[in-house]
Design a binder for these strands. Structure first.
Lengths: 222, 222
DNA sequence: TAAATTTTTTAACGCTGTTAAAATTTTAAT
DNA sequence: ATTAAAATTTTAACAGCGTTAAAAAATTTA
């Protein structure tokens, strides 16, 4: 009998472990989407993945490690979405970004809700470290504000760092309120964009400020 | 022997139960302040209060009931603070309110941090019901914005309901970030007031807008 | 003082995350 | 191909959790 793969070391073993690891994370996502992060118990997860609890500890780790692995995936996807933010104007850039995020969340709303709640709860989005997730995602709105200032859309009375932080805060709060079930994804869109346009209006030059008011009125009418 | 209190029914019994209830809640607060809400276990709480677990269930209820009782107290205190908000101008009113809140949180910072996190986690601050905590606290900023519009400080291009909601959001986000340990109480002050002044600036008349810019600069220098 | 009522405790259930040790499976060497 | 070595999975267990029924103790009423 000819060997299927004449690999030098640990072919079937490594492959099986990788497959099992994927199964575990996939089932974990499903369970979280179905009944929230608190309903994710190691034993049930093991049963659904067709193995036993200690195997999960061996392949991935404890409950916090499972969450960390899932959040890592999400952050990667969010980074891709943020990198695609390229509207002509500042407000288009932000609007596209929020809409893309909402569309992305809509693909598995229950799962993303639970994941963000669990992530916040586990301190995975901490703001102190300069290399953390928070610091990374904050860069973009700051740069967008700086660019808007150069385009003479903003007066520059408020430093881009301050304005960008507030804008990012508007997105975070809307996301949290959505995740907590206070409103749906359309509410998230409206709430996030209202906050962002309001922040921009605070430092806007007259013409751009009127434009922001129009955008805000348009949002209200949704 | 003369009876101490010739009460008609259940004097010592009722009094003892009330005393025990207070002891339980007091110890619960201490435990939360010491090591967070997750470290609050019924058995440990019972031990510290000098009784057993089922008694807690009898006098107060389960873990969520304990939290609800504690949150009820906090909300009462916050309502008092909010009702004392009476500055001459809008921004003074908000500034006094934020500062009073920060001072109040400072009296037992660890406890309030844990309580807000637990409250958020338990859905006690839900936004849908018209009679809920959220709806109640939202009224004040909306009214303050409406008053500022009448004083011709705001242009009125943004409805007071929209502006007030955003302002309340700025406070909530700052509170959450503080509770999550992202910054200290001074950070809370700065973050909340920056957001609030920014919101006001978005709809401000020229003179008031410049005043807001000055306030923002002053905050940055802290 | 005795009976009735109410509160507290004892004891237990089913569940959780996690880990040591045993059993099994896969790899390497003869 | 067979056997020895290594690595992975499972069995079994620990300590802890929230919660509840039933027994014990305490208080009130008659």
């Amino acid at each position: 009998m000819a060997r299927e793969t004449p690999d030098s070391s640990g072919s079937t073993r490594t492959k099986n472990m990788a497959r099992r690891r994927d199964t575990i994370l996939r089932e974990a996502r499903t369970m979280i989407a179905e009944s929230g992060f608190d309903a994710l118990t190691i034993r049930n997860l093991a049963k659904r993945a067709g193995l036993t609890a200690p195997t999960i500890y061996n392949l991935i780790g404890g409950k916090s490690d499972i969450l960390a692995a899932i959040i890592r995936d999400i952050v990667e996807q969010l980074q891709i979405i943020q990198s695609r933010a390229d509207g002509k104007t500042v407000e288009e850039t932000f609007a596209k970004q929020i809409n893309d995020l909402a569309d992305h969340f809509a693909t598995d709303e229950a799962f993303y809700k639970a994941a963000f709640i669990a992530g916040d709860r586990s301190g995975l989005f901490e703001q102190s470290s300069q290399e953390g997730i928070f610091a990374h995602f904050l860069k973009q709105p700051i740069e967008a504000c700086a660019a808007a200032e150069k385009q003479k859309l903003l007066r520059g009375n408020i430093p881009p760092e301050v304005l960008g932080l507030q804008i990012y805060g508007c997105y975070r709060l809307a996301r949290q309120d959505w995740a907590n079930g206070y409103f749906d994804l359309n509410g998230f869109r409206k709430q996030a964009l209202t906050g962002i346009f309001l922040c921009l209006a605070a430092d806007a030059e007259p013409l751009f400020r009127e434009h922001m008011m129009d955008q805000l009125s348009a949002l209200e009418r949704v």
